[in-house]
């Protein structure tokens, strides 16, 4: 069940006013029958104690993914914890949490957004997405962004803006995807190799984690007990945001 994009419990909950429950279950069953085996579970542990709030992650991500103005796959909040007596801000970078139980997925009218069965990354199929932005409303973490087609004003020498996302290398052309689509952090998935793994030494590593001056973004395979992320989670008490929603984020925080 853990690997299915939508748990049954969740499904019932969300089927809402109109859903024909039987059909929905059938759909999920089919999806499960054909589900490839999960090979990795990519996730992050973000150590807010190491984060200095510099926002290098925000910029590195924008440059890596060539996102337009207004689209930030991660942002850094700088709020004091509720009830803080010192008023000291807690710096917190906030990519997509690649929820195990992501509310953004069941709402999509065209199945354009889904969770990769092999490694848990939540992706958007730009060619399928109709740009209704329902998923933006549904994500409880503000992790999704709409591409309204804004452009940066740069010298012509900067060349065309080609995003490597999903290894699709799309140029920005008015009216064409990803303009008009929902967009989000995809753990810099284009940096994976053929086997679907990342290689830190070769620089094939999420851009935000790669640049972080505080070394606060620890990325890795949560399913691999030897990984740095798994080790940290074993040894520390980590928290996830809005646990009460049952979304089960793949991104943990150390406070």
């Amino acid at each position: 069940m853990a690997t299915s994009p939508v748990s049954r419990r969740d499904l019932f909950k969300r089927a809402g006013a109109g859903a024909v429950v039987g059909a929905a279950i059938a759909h999920t069953a089919v999806a499960e029958a054909t589900a490839p085996v999960r090979k990795h579970h990519w996730g992050m542990v973000i150590d807010t104690r190491r984060c200095v709030g510099c926002e290098a992650c925000v910029i590195a991500c924008k440059i890596e993914n060539k996102t337009p103005p207004g689209v930030f796959y991660t942002v850094v909040t700088k709020e004091p914890l509720a009830g803080s007596t010192t008023g000291k801000p807690v710096f917190m970078t906030k990519p997509c949490f690649h929820c195990e139980n992501p509310p953004c997925i069941p709402v999509c009218p065209v199945n354009a957004t889904y969770k990769r069965k092999t490694d848990g990354i939540v992706v958007v199929d730009y060619d399928r997405c109709i740009g209704c932005r329902y998923c933006l409303a549904a994500c409880p973490y503000g992790a999704r962004y709409a591409d309204f087609g804004d452009e940066y004003d740069l010298l012509p020498m900067a060349g065309e803006n080609v995003s490597p996302e999903y290894k699709q290398y799309r140029e920005r052309v008015p009216g064409q995807s990803p303009i008009g689509n929902a967009r989000k952090c995809q753990f810099c998935m284009h940096l994976q190799d053929e086997q679907g793994t990342y290689d830190r030494e070769a620089g094939r590593w999420p851009a935000c984690a790669k640049t972080c001056p505080g070394h606060a973004i620890i990325f890795g395979d949560l399913d691999d007990p030897e990984s740095e992320v798994a080790t940290i989670l074993r040894e520390h008490n980590a928290v996830r945001v809005k646990e009460e929603l049952g979304t089960e984020p793949s991104v943990y925080y150390l406070l």
Binding site: G16, A19, A112, R128
Partner: peptide, 8 residues
């Protein structure tokens, strides 16, 4: 691309 879980 039928998604029966989507109210939309």
């Amino acid at each position: 691309f039928v998604n029966p879980t989507s109210p939309m």
